[in-house]
Amino acid sequence: MKQAIGTIPLFGLESGKFHDAVLFQGVDLATLQGIEASWTPMFDTAAAENRPEDAHWEWAAKALQALQNPLNYEIFGIEADGKTQGMMLVVKGGAKCFSRHPEHPRMPLVYVDFLATAPWNRRGLIESPTYKGVGRVLFMSAVSLSIEEEFAGRVALHSLPGAEAFYRDRLSMTDLGADGDYQNLRYFELSTTQARQLISAWP
């Protein structure tokens, strides 16, 4: 089931203005078909050197996983101009949802399993991206969910190499190093303190 949970502003890079977008919780068939029809061809036609690290992610399979296990998974999407601008799958229970941060070891948290912005919003993929801030809005939705679940805003994830700077520098997450048990991807956490700071800086 898909439900609109709020209107959020996305910055239009061409217009130089903010545009209304809708944040959804859950997903439906039309959204998945839209992603398959509009995201996949752009990933497939990207030059090999520009092909994003997440181009192989299959959102339909991920959505099915979330729908089959509503206790542990939540899926969020952002829509504007009748198109999906970004998607995120998070886990809110299970083995991945315990903190490794020295500030609060073993405390529960929300784990971002997958987060992706539409190909037309990516600077590395096309010359003039449409919207800026999709990834940040989705990430803040994970922080909000963490607060709703009484996890004090704590969020964790393993980052693809191309997104490490975004999580480390733009979201000020703690880089806890490469995880040998998880394809050697670097593991990042937003601690309770960092979550408070991020929320207070959020417009």
Binding site: L71, N72, K92, G93, G94, A95, C97, P108, E149, E150
Partner: peptide
């Protein structure tokens, strides 16, 4: 955590 949140977490962990 509140009692509700803790039981909810325990249930998720048990299920996984």
């Amino acid at each position: 955590l509140s009692k509700t949140a803790l039981v909810r977490q325990a249930l998720r962990l048990y299920k996984s």
